[in-house]
Design a protein around this nucleic acid. Structure first.
Lengths: 233, 233
DNA sequence: AAGCAAAACCTGTATGACAGGTTTGAGGGA
DNA sequence: TCCCTCAAACCTGTCATACAGGTTTTGCTT
């Protein structure tokens, strides 16, 4: 499973540490052996162990902190976000392709959210849609509420993989969102965007999957139009 | 954008290197400055630069090789695969949740593949489905052909993000696939699984999105049933 | 101009050192 | 007996140096 990473002492050490985590069934928060102990047990220098630790920390598989021992980490979207940004910056991925993926998974997300949301989640989602209305003239705040809105929907789907993916797209979205906003020049087009979010929230709160899907489709139709208008290939 | 990674010289250095890549519009294959030069320019030790390099290499943002300078890498699913495996091993994610996500995106993938596939891709996909039939009594080979089949579909969708995601699920799939196979005890259930793949391939080859979607749905219904039978929560 | 070999450069790994931050455990007081 | 305190032990972050290979560049030779 981790043979792709081998070639070199650091790669071997990454493998050994991963194996140690699995074989001992370590859970998030559990502590790993110290660098000194690992370097002795594996017969490599502390340098090598440290570089292996950094690699695992970059993937958010472990967590490092000064003075403390390394701990097993909870999966997190930070690294995926950077990877996707890299893909976009190197022109392998374009924004429309990301919108296609987001539309696909967010359509599923609202279906699940409409079915599985708790009442507290419904309240939260409605509140975030309301926050967006209030931030209508404050783009930075509006964007944050928009991102939080989609994150809350993913959470309500009760499938952490969807949360992970929505999080993974957040980095690049943060970079492109202002462009999309600027390309909605009229008040009417901006109001429409806000209204669409409210429709999604209401449908999820009403536990109406079909209407939620329709509203989400409208949201993405509108967003993709804005992105195309901005010329984001 | 990369402030989440800061705190500490290594984090700062990761940020500086990322910025260097973006500001100079470096593309995959382009070489970065040597460790010595970076350590001099950033005023940190080579140790720090090396740990930053390892972090970026773990996310497949750069590529390292002995003797050569570090180069900008093409985005790759290897790291995502490890991250998702970690999520499953730590019980944050379960297999059914992964199947729900895969079903969602693969349904979209076959739609796109049916529309956008090249003739060569159609041939390849049909060939892989045929290979699966031939490997019917060789689980290891069958699994590889199965994975290659889904990878080929993602490629034919012409959206690299789908390829990335399918690749990201491959690591954990490789670990659970044999369990699903074992839980199809009868010859009939195994034949059905092979036939379903052939149906998907034929629908894509025939450029019939609706039929492709139906066949894919059948595939996942059958797979999820097998996984549930195996008791993979 | 083409080819070749040496020099310069670069990365991988090891060792030792020291400044902080954290955990542990011994001792003392209530 | 239990709890608190604090110093010792432990641990990570960073630096400097060294050297064994591997790679690129340079400059000479043909």
């Amino acid at each position: 499973m981790e043979q792709a990473v081998s070639s070199g002492l650091v790669g071997d050490t990454i493998g050994a540490i991963s194996r140690h985590i699995r074989e001992n069934d370590l859970m998030p928060g559990d502590r790993l052996p110290s660098e000194a102990i690992l370097s002795k047990e594996l017969g490599v220098s502390r340098t090598v162990v440290r570089e292996a630790f950094r690699s695992l920390a970059a993937m958010r598989i472990i967590e490092l902190a000064t003075g403390k021992r390394a701990t097993v980490a909870q999966i997190d979207h930070g690294a995926m976000s950077l990877m996707i940004e890299h893909g976009v910056h190197t022109d392998l991925i374009n924004i429309q392709q990301i919108y296609d993926v987001r539309r696909t998974i967010e359509t599923r997300i609202v279906t699940l959210a409409a079915i599985r949301r708790s009442d507290a989640e419904a309240v939260k989602i409605l509140a975030l849609a309301a926050c967006m209305q209030e931030s209508a003239h404050n783009p930075a705040g509006l964007m944050e509420h928009d991102l939080a809105f989609h994150t809350a929907l993913a959470l309500a789907s009760r499938n952490p993989v969807y949360s992970l993916l929505i999080g993974a797209f957040q980095g690049i979205t943060r970079q492109t969102w202002p462009i999309g906003w600027e390309s909605r020049p009229t008040q009417a087009s901006r109001d429409l965007m806000l209204a669409t979010h409210l429709n999604i929230a209401r449908a999820v709160a009403a536990s109406d999957p079909q209407q939620a899907v329709d509203a989400m489709a409208q949201h993405f139709d509108e967003s993709v139009r804005a992105v195309l208008a901005a010329g984001l290939s």
